[in-house]
Design a protein around this nucleic acid. Structure first.
Lengths: 190, 190
DNA sequence: CTATCGTTTGGACGAGTGCCCAAGGCGATC
DNA sequence: GATCGCCTTGGGCACTCGTCCAAACGATAG
């Protein structure tokens, strides 16, 4: 069997995915080319179409993977927070770690936009977002926050909106957290 | 004087700007080319670089103009609303008119991302956003809403975040409005 | 040793890119 | 009618683009 060849192939695949995660934020989704991504990964250009059906497929897989990991990160916050106010503070602190111009934030927004032009990507991304809303919504419901699902949806929207705006002009986390406290008022633990 | 020639030139310029407003949402900022924008405007390709220093300059001017008009639209809502809750409802209703995949929404987000790669555009866009925050913040302050500036900033972020998420999966305006009511609680008119 | 397998190479293909510019058009001014 | 000025045309330049593929590679299996 081509044991080593196959494993080396898997490594190359991962490096291409990682390169895509870096380049989409840097240049913009539609400005990433097969040659730049191969160059960043340190492999020959032809390998892109050996490991992936198309450049779009590579970008989509890289983006969905990255966003899934981000949602998992927020999911971890749900485990630790005890009250809705604590959760909001934890989210605000987490979001504050991003400047808005960091790769993760930009990749998320680039992916949203790309999804409006790619039905397959859109469907997969919808799954990720609905998953997030579902997790947070259920958590809020258990703690008596009114309109838990709508609150979770707005919370998710605030996160991305804050990232988007922070890329342009400062938006202190402290102020955001204070305002968001009011959003979860009505729970049994404020 | 070249009265008619100059005026025809101004018309061509406007058509190019309008074409850019349409194409950026359709194809993505970095995927709009001189030829596609000229074709959509119904003019010869060479005219792009006659009326604008570069393709980037055309896109930037088109985008800043469009976003400025949107901010003006929300500014009009400030004139009509009497209480913070009324304002939130008006904003939610206004936002509900956008599906998230409409040209205006996508143009806004595309412009944010482009601004992270173009310092000039970034500066101009920051001006538009700060203008919005300032208007809403002052309005909220007069009506006794706590933390008026932070509230205005979060409100602005929510608008863009909701547009972004609505592009993927439904987000009913009624639920959003209800949650946002809590954000402006504490005013003298709830 | 040869055959076979998945992986890799590097270049070919036609199409599209931003920007530029000589040449022409056309109304206003003299 | 001649001249001037702005606007317009359409093609040229030197690239880059996504995709494909014949040929080579290295390692295992017979």
């Amino acid at each position: 069997m081509t044991e080593t060849a196959a494993s080396r192939g898997r490594v190359v695949r991962q490096r291409l995915l990682q390169a895509a995660r870096e380049l989409v934020p840097e240049r913009g989704w539609t400005a990433v080319s097969t040659r730049t991504v191969a160059d960043r990964a340190g492999v020959a250009p032809g390998l892109v179409h050996y490991h992936f059906a198309s450049l779009q497929a590579l970008l989509a897989e890289a983006a969905v993977g990255a966003l899934g990991e981000m949602v998992d990160g927020v999911g971890a916050l749900l485990q630790q927070a005890r009250t809705p106010v604590e959760l909001v503070d934890a989210i605000a602190a987490e979001v504050d770690r991003y400047t808005g111009t960091d790769p993760a934030s930009l990749l998320a927004v680039e992916t949203y936009l790309a999804a409006t032009r790619d039905p397959d990507l859109r469907e997969r991304l919808t799954g990720v977002l609905d998953d997030f809303r579902g997790q947070v919504g259920a958590w809020l419901r258990e703690r008596g926050v009114p309109d838990p699902d709508a609150t979770a949806a707005v919370l998710a929207a605030v996160i991305d909106g804050v990232l988007l705006h922070r890329a342009l002009t400062p938006l202190p986390a402290a102020g955001v957290a204070g305002v968001l406290h009011r959003i979860v008022e009505g729970g049994d633990s404020r």
